[in-house]
């Protein structure tokens, strides 16, 4: 089973490159079961969109 620590790293990596098939499957399964990591992924998306919106204002 993937840990939250590993999941957080994969979530970050997934923002910069397409994840491999097995990485994607393992991460998706982890996210189904882990609310903390779902929130973490949302935070990372908000971080990116916040920076881009602020940059383009």
């Amino acid at each position: 089973r993937m840990s939250c620590k590993q999941a957080s790293r994969l979530i970050s990596d997934g923002m910069d490159r397409p994840l491999g098939r097995s990485e994607q499957v393992r991460l998706s399964f982890h996210l189904l079961l882990c609310r903390n990591c779902r929130h973490f992924r949302q935070q990372m998306q908000q971080l990116r969109s916040g920076i881009r919106r602020a940059r383009d204002e």
Binding site: C4, N36, C37, H39
Partner: peptide, 12 residues
């Protein structure tokens, strides 16, 4: 130690 979050990650 198991790689789980120490504190709850809250939605912003």
């Amino acid at each position: 130690g198991q790689g789980a979050w120490q504190q709850a990650v809250r939605a912003w």
